[in-house]
Computed example of a mutant assay.
Amino acid sequence: MKYIQKNILTTILLIAFLFVNAACQAQKSSVSNKNINIETKKKKKKRKIKLPNIDLSHWKVTIPEGEGKGKTINVEPPEILNYANNNILKPYMYNDSLSGALVFYAYPSSSTTANTKYSRSELREQMVPGNDHVNWTFAQGGIMKGKLAMGEVTKDKDGKYHKVIIMQIHGRLTDQQRDLIGQKDNNAPPILKIYWQNGKIRVKTKVLKNLASTYEEMLHEDAWGDDDGYTFEDEVGFGKFTLEIKVSDGKMVVILNKTNYKVYENIHMKKWGVFENYFKAGNYFQSRDEGSYAKVKFYELSIEH
């Protein structure tokens, strides 16, 4: 009898052990499944579509698509607002939804603007949407801010990255000024070019060759020469960085990453006041090498006047 009772007790203990063990395994499985569900949700969150913080209602874009020199395609507001569904624009201007950037792609093309040999996928400010004839002077002032990064860029035969102009302030003649000097178009020199050059930011501006030039003489492009340029010490490489351009009467300031300043406040800036201007931003690719290209990523871009 004692033997039977002992066996019964052993059996009961074994059943109890198996029940508790099964419960623990179920709990572990539940925790494991919960963890898997949490990880799955995290991955889904990581894949969430990001969009750039850019209002394109006051920009038109020029792309290297057309039928030769001076035959590029321009897309203005309101059409540019639907760029993601524009088949002509898609190869040159598109969203990178993983990083939240607007990408500008350019490569050497036979389609260039009239006054250059280089191609571009570049935005041009329009104070009045669809109208290139309304612009601003230094006396009126302006600010352009951007957060951007070099996405991809090829190298030249010497192993150096090809240069890309990422921001500009371009001069423009009024119709009256154009007619005064007998020029066929309204083009004037760019007072500011900002380059991405081998991982650093380089700034170029203009100087008046003869400070005694008359008003009419100053309107000619050949009255202005290039300065020596300035390269910011900090290297941006392929990481994100910010640029801010502030313009006021006789003064221009370029700010890199909110802490590095280059200030232009001199007679040349004062003299530049004869011109109207507009901001540009994007990818003005500075190479004709076969197989070369660049992709510039803009996360934020804004203008104020």
Rank of each mutant, 00 (worst) to 15 (best):
M93W: 06
T113W: 06
T113H: 07
Y83E: 03
L98F: 01
N87D: 13
N87A: 10
Y92W: 04
A114I: 14
L102D: 06
P91M: 07
S110K: 15
A84H: 09
P91S: 06
A84D: 12
L89K: 06
L98S: 10
S109W: 14
T112H: 12
F104A: 13
N115E: 14
L89C: 01
N86R: 06
K90A: 10
Y105P: 00
Y105Q: 01
N85F: 08
A101C: 02
L102E: 08
A106G: 06
I88E: 05
A101T: 02
L98Y: 06
P108G: 08
L81N: 04
A106W: 02
D96W: 08
Y83R: 03
I88C: 01
Y107T: 14
L81K: 11
Y83A: 02
D96T: 05
S110L: 12
N87R: 11
V103D: 04
F104I: 13
Y92N: 06
F104Q: 13
V103M: 10
N115H: 15
I88H: 01
A101S: 08
S111T: 14
F104H: 11
S110T: 15
Y92L: 07
K90E: 04
L102P: 05
L102W: 09
F104E: 11
M93K: 04
M93F: 10
A84N: 11
P108T: 10
A106Y: 03
A114V: 13
A106V: 04
G100P: 11
D96G: 05
F104T: 12
Y92Q: 03
S97W: 02
K90H: 08
P91T: 10
I80G: 08
P108M: 05
N95G: 06
D96L: 05
Y83P: 02
L102G: 04
S110M: 11
